Computed example of a mutant assay.
Amino acid sequence: MLSTKASVVLVEYTDTYEEHLSNYYLPEEQLQFTSMPLDKINNPSVSSTANHVLNLEDGVPVGYFALEDGEKLLKYSTNPTARLLTSFSIDARNQGKGLAKIGLQLLPEFVRNNLFGTDEFVLGVNQKNTPAYNLYLKTGFVDENEFYEGPKGPQHILHLKV
């Protein structure tokens, strides 16, 4: 059997992906650490300047995250040219295929091409979410031993320079 490498890209969310995202699935144990994509995209408390980014495999959305600025960012960083990466997830039916890692590896290039002037990402990862913490470290994020007390417990603040 021949195997072909899937084409994985990051793209800005548009309404054309809404139907795919309405079928997005995450189990309860993961929802304690993230949000469903459409819930985040349609959340009025998210900055209107946030970027909603999809991880596509062969043109189909398999992952999502937001890049936020404004008040929420200031809880994690004093860098005015940073973006806060939030709500990172891969649809549960597509987990275990390396798509999260590939998406995070594509992030710096995506930002250089789409978010001019952004020179760093920061994120908070719950101390209880060891798989996510390890994934972020494997893809270049650095733990500078900073913490944020989030609504669901302490979070490691991780940094990635672009």
Rank of each mutant, 00 (worst) to 15 (best):
T81N: 12
S47H: 09
Q32K: 15
S47G: 11
S89L: 01
D143H: 10
P37D: 03
F110K: 04
L137N: 09
Y76L: 02
I90A: 05
E71L: 06
N129F: 11
V142K: 13
D39W: 12
K75I: 06
Y136Q: 05
T49H: 05
F147R: 09
G98N: 13
S89E: 00
K97C: 15
T130Q: 15
G98W: 15
Q32C: 09
S47T: 13
L135P: 13
P154T: 11
M36W: 05
N23F: 11
M36R: 14
K128C: 04
L56W: 01
V122M: 02
D58I: 09
Q127P: 04
A132S: 13
I90Y: 12
L137C: 03
N134G: 15
F33W: 14
I90G: 04
G153I: 05
T118N: 01
L73T: 02
S89Q: 02
N114E: 04
G103W: 02
N113A: 15
F121Q: 08
P151E: 14
G96Y: 15
N55A: 14
E120W: 01
K40M: 08
A92G: 10
S48V: 12
T130K: 14
T34K: 05
G103N: 05
L84I: 04
I157C: 03
L137T: 11
P108A: 07
L106E: 12
